[in-house]
Each structure stands twice: as structure tokens, then as C-alpha cells.
Design a binder for these strands. Structure first.
Lengths: 363, 363
DNA sequence: CGGTGTCATGACATCGGTGTCATATGCGCT
DNA sequence: AGCGCATATGACACCGATGTCATGACACCG
């Protein structure tokens, strides 16, 4: 690869003059500039980032840690894809700031994080974005002391700046939308109870019920575990079974996410329950590949992952420029309710046959 | 950030000795080594990658260009997610080779590729992986002369090493699996006809029919366009309408991808056609979030994107080490047929009511 | 005509490491 | 004791860029 010295020699000037042409930081005569540019073109010269950053002591790099790239492979991940949207949002902002993203992947293994950060340090990254695969508390302190960091989709109790989804607000708004259609028996098929998202959304669900003076019925809330287990469909089946063999059957079902809603569509159909005529269904995430493609299209609460990534990147850039004094509590990002065909007014009375298939085995 | 000089001063040795401790490339007395290590720990010293690469003229970086991160946002992308798996596969291989991936995103805009490659050149990447969002011919020559490159999910006519999916073989195997269940009327709902994947898979489909002496019926092949258009469901609806109002109705439907199959599930249900009792359905891609979650679970042909990424990365590393003399024709990567509940033997006779809802409008 | 200021350019040091070569120390052997 | 040799360490140059300062050429002014 040609160097600035090669260019200088070919143009018959000093290296420093070539540098001046490159950086436009001092006047250069038109004639000289042309000669230098011609030499650069002829040699295919591209300045070395390494040489620059060693002198300036600025790398122009932002490190980003994610498990998205690997997690997307595992059905196990309750929210593997979202990380990707977060990365996208961050990427767009970082790029506009003329910096370069160094993306590293944990491969799903948290114990690799220190190594990744070590590599970042070797590259002298100016800041780090840490993206969790789902909304959760971060139980370890990240290494890399002195490097500004922003957490995304997770938070710690050390006051590290963080950006998280507004799970509670999202479920609250979504449940309100269901209530606004006239539903009173609203079942909720949650994700794993231990998840931060589940706790917060349940809170939003109850809050909406309370405000509408609809009594909370524990029998209408069932937890499933979407961790790709073989018995996944069975769990959902059993949960629905409980809903539809109860005295008062639900007229709408909230699902922990869009994927869960997709499974529910199939099982309701098998039981002879039409969506949305017999029962409305709503999801969560607005995972559009699912929500817009399902038939009927799925009503769901948008989880604005891209916006989270963008916001986090902005916060980080703010920290770097020394402007921002970041909030010590996580920033919550809210999304819209996407009202689609799967949510309609309930019928006055549900009359379909309910076939209990409890105990059936997976095909 | 501490430098090797700081460490040297603190340990009371020369910088060169610190370098020797770091690289273990020359004998250092135990006592000195301990002193140096202690000084490094105390100062939190991490060697500068930039300084190293400037001297060694080796960056240890591999550039990767993708649109995945952005494309995943657009429903438009017929195969936005797959890129991600490719990245994952590449990442795993690259990492094992002690190199670092520099991932850049086109943001869906091809015209940005030259800029991205320019940035890669500034970082002196040793090789470039170019990942297309779907299997297609690459109509431009990539800049960055002299840098080894491997194309993934695309190919050119310049002999650039490339890795592509075996679309034809996949659809052939899948169709064979359908035929093996006893189906003879096998409809095919393809993706957009202009896609490379559509052409190749159609070839595989016909090949399988030919071998089984099943005559090809053009009426059983309908194209849809999944580019997120509002009329997407309508198109699928119309296509299915043609299938099921024909004289001999299909007993199985092949879909251009899993997402299409998901939409088909919903529409068949609306028409009173049960999957798989009345009609088997198969997809393509094995997009597991869909194929394993749909109810009944979807039979589909795996598209081993991760393996493609891994293979491409291996090829690139081979080129770098000067070992590999790469094939001049694209390497095709095949996947397995995943047989799941949506594909069963056909009934002898289909008797369900077929309700034509042609011309209905989107909800 | 000489003094002064501006413009254009180059010489040289420097950033943080590593390669090359020189030097100091210690040990075994004759 | 003197020689040879391996081990341990340091001085110095260099990689490719840029900051600092110096210098040469010219125009302008009194």
C-alpha cells in the first residue's frame, strides 16, 4: 500500500505538503495541489487510519457488544431479533457522526465480554454500547474502566447510563386499546414470569384493568415459556385450555410477544375458535414479519428497538463530546399500539363448541 | 492511556524489554518479567493495536459489508434476516482465526458501498466479505483492487470467489419429500419471478416432478410478490383462489418462503381448508421463528445461511494465507429438508367446501 | 531601496510499538 | 586466568502520519 512518502516523491513535494492537501488545514498552491492529487490517484493512495490515530490519539471507533448475531440462531432467545434493530438504530447515528462501529458478538456467552472489551481497548475505542438480548438487569460490572458506556435493553445499579423499553407503558396502552373495543374478559398469556418484561407488562395490564374497573382475574393469566422447548405448543395449548373451559371465557387474549400470538392463532383454529370473530388476539413487539404477515394481521404494541439504539448512540456521543450529563435512571422508550385486524369488538355471546384436547401429545 | 514507555519506566526496564514480555519472543528473566507484569497491571496497560499494525503492516481486520442490519427493518426485504445468519457464521470463523471483524452496513443503499470500502482501506483490512440481501447476480464490480474478496449470497461474472445457496437442490429435495408422501397435485406459490431464487427453485421443482413422471401444470404455479405491498394478502388470496377453483385441486402447496407459508395458513383456514388434513403446506428457508412456532409446525427446506457465512470466511482466510486457489464458479451450499407436521399423506379425495372470496378487499 | 508581513513549503520531532544490532553479565572449559 | 558462548538487556531506527518551527519567495509600504 502506497504511503504519503510515495505520493510526495511522485509529486515532487514533501510529505508534509501531501498531508496538507489531504487535510486542507493550510494553504497549498493550486498547481501543487493538482500534482499531489494526481499522484494520489495514480498510486491509489489511501491514508492509514492506524498512523493517524497513533498520532492524534483518537481512534474514531465506537465498540458495540451484542449477542444478536448469534442469538438469532437460537429459537431459545425470547427476543433475539430485536437486538438487531437496536444495532441498526445505533449504526445509523454513529455513522452520521463520522465514527466507525466495531461490532463484537458474545456468541451468547457472557463470559466472553471481558475479552471483547479487551480487544476494544486495544483498538482504543472511544465509547462502548452494550446491548442485551432482552430487557434485564445486568448482574456484572463491565470492565473497561474509564471508557464511557451506555447500556441498551438492560440496566445496572451503578448508575451506568441506560436505555430500556417502556414495557409497562406499552402493555398499558395495548390493554387500553383492547378495553376500548369493549372487551371485559381479557386473558393474558405471558412470557416466562422471571423476565423483566413480564413483570413490567403485567403491571401495565393490571393498571389498565384497574382504571377501567375491570376486576383482575388470576385465572385469566397464564405463563408460558418460549425457550424453544419441545413442549412449547403443549404449554400454550394447556394455557388456552384453562381459559376456554372456565366459566366465563375470554373475548380477547394478550400474548407475551408476536411469536406467541402466531402459535395461538394455530391452536385457536384447531379448537374451532376464529380470530378475530370469536376471540381477539394481540401480541407484543410489532415484529412485522409476523404481525403484518399473519392472517388476520396482528394488533400489537410496537417495541421501538431501533429508536432505543439511536437514542443510546446519541447519549454516548453526548458523553464523548462532554456535553451530556446523562440521567442516572434508565431512559424509557415507548412505542405505539398498532391496531390491526386481529382486534375487534367482542360478540355479545360466544357460542362455539369448545373441545378440550388437554393431554394430547405434540405431533 | 498508558504506553509501553510508562510501563518500562515503572518497572525500571527498557521499552523493548516490556515488548518482549508482551510477545514472549525472547528470553526474559523471571524477576524482570514479574516486575513488568506488575507494572502493566498497576497502570492498566493495554497495547495499542494501531501502533502495532503500523509497524507490522498487518491490521488483523476483515471487512464485512452487509445490508442486514438495515434491511431487517423493511418488510420489503424478501430475505433480510438471512443475512444475519450469514454474518453469524462468518463471525464465528473469523474470530477463531484471531482476527477482528469490521462490520459495515449499506443501509440498503448500494451506492454507499464504495465509501464503505474506502473506510475499510483506511483501516487496511486484509480481506472483504460482501453479503447480499438475497441470492442475486452482482451487477457492479466492487472497488478495492488488490484486496481479496469473497461474495456471499451473490455472484459476478468476473470470477470473484462466491458462496451461494443451493436453491435448485433445496427445492428439488423438498418437492421430492412432498412426492414421497404420495402427492401428485403439488401447487407452487413462488416469490417474485425475477428473483434468482425463484428461477432456480422452479427448476428444482420441475426436475422433481419430471423424475416422478408427474406432468407439469402451469396452472399450479402462481407468483406472488412479498415486497410488503398493501395488496400482499390479496395476491396470495387470488393465487389460492385459482388453485382451489380449478378442476383438480392441489393436495399440497409449496411456498416461496416460510413467511409466505404463514400467510397461506391463515388464508386456507379462512376458506375452511385445514392444514395438513385437507392440504399440506411446505415453506422454504427454515426460518425457525416461523417454522417451529406455526401450528402445525412447518415442513420446509433449510437454507443454511450460517454455513454459507462460515464457508465464505474460510475461503477468505484461505486466500489470505495463500493456500487456497478458490473455485471460479460459486460454491453451492445445501441444506436439509425439515419434515414437520404440515406435510402428511393426502386424503384420497378432498371434499371440503370451497368458498370463492375472489375480489374481496383487504381488511 | 530596505523593512515587514504573508504565503507556500520543507526539515524535523513525535506518536507507540517492534526489528536489528550492540553490549553486559555470567558460566563452563582448557 | 583467559577464552568462547549463551543469556539478558538496552540503544536506536523505523513504520506512516501530523504538529511545530524555520525558511524562501514575493508583494507592499514608507
Amino acid at each position: 500500500m502506497a504511503t504519503i512518502y510515495d505520493v510526495a516523491k511522485r509529486a515532487g513535494v514533501s510529505p508534509k505538503t501531501v498531508s496538507r492537501v489531504l487535510n486542507r488545514d493550510a494553504p497549498v498552491s493550486t498547481k501543487t495541489r493538482k500534482a499531489v492529487n494526481a499522484a494520489m490517484d495514480a498510486l491509489g493512495y489511501v491514508p492509514s487510519h492506524a498512523a493517524r490515530s497513533i498520532k492524534s490519539n483518537k481512534s474514531g471507533l465506537i465498540g458495540l457488544i451484542t449477542g444478536a448475531i448469534s442469538n438469532a440462531d437460537e429459537v431459545a432467545a425470547p427476543a433475539g431479533l430485536p437486538e438487531l434493530f437496536i444495532v441498526q438504530g445505533a449504526q445509523a447515528v454513529i455513522e452520521r457522526s463520522q465514527k466507525t462501529l466495531l461490532i463484537s458478538d458474545t456468541g451468547g456467552r457472557l463470559d466472553r465480554v471481558p475479552d471483547l472489551i479487551r480487544t476494544f481497548q486495544e483498538h482504543r475505542v472511544e465509547g462502548i454500547l452494550y446491548i442485551a438480548d432482552h430487557h434485564k438487569p445486568l448482574d456484572m460490572a463491565l470492565p473497561g474502566e474509564g471508557i464511557p458506556k451506555v447500556l441498551v435493553n438492560c440496566f445496572d445499579d451503578l448508575g451506568t447510563p441506560a436505555v430500556v423499553p417502556d414495557d409497562q407503558g406499552g402493555q398499558y396502552a395495548l390493554t387500553n386499546a383492547v378495553i376500548a373495543e369493549g372487551h371485559k374478559r381479557i386473558a393474558y398469556l405471558t412470557l416466562a414470569p422471571a423476565l423483566e418484561a413480564t413483570k413490567l407488562r403485567l403491571r401495565g395490564y393490571r393498571h389498565a384493568l384497574d382504571e377501567a374497573d375491570i376486576p383482575f382475574d388470576g385465572g385469566l393469566v397464564q405463563a408460558t415459556d418460549l425457550h424453544g422447548s419441545q413442549g412449547e405448543h403443549q404449554l400454550i395449548w394447556d394455557a388456552l385450555d384453562k381459559f376456554f373451559t372456565a366459566d366465563a371465557q375470554p373475548t380477547a387474549i394478550c400474548c407475551g410477544n408476536d411469536r406467541l400470538a402466531m402459535a395461538v392463532y394455530g391452536i385457536l383454529r384447531r379448537r374451532g375458535i376464529s380470530v378475530p370473530e370469536d376471540c381477539s388476539v394481540v401480541g407484543f413487539d410489532d415484529h412485522r414479519t409476523i404481525s403484518e404477515t399473519l392472517f388476520p394481521a396482528l394488533t400489537t404494541a410496537e417495541l421501538p428497538y431501533s429508536a432505543m439504539g439511536a437514542r443510546a448512540a446519541q447519549m454516548l456521543l453526548g458523553l464523548l463530546s462532554g456535553e451530556g450529563r446523562p440521567a442516572t435512571t434508565p431512559i424509557k422508550i415507548s412505542g405505539e399500539v398498532k391496531h390491526r385486524a386481529s382486534l375487534v369488538r367482542p360478540r355479545s355471546r360466544i357460542t362455539q363448541n369448545v373441545v378440550s384436547l388437554k393431554g394430547r401429545t405434540e405431533t
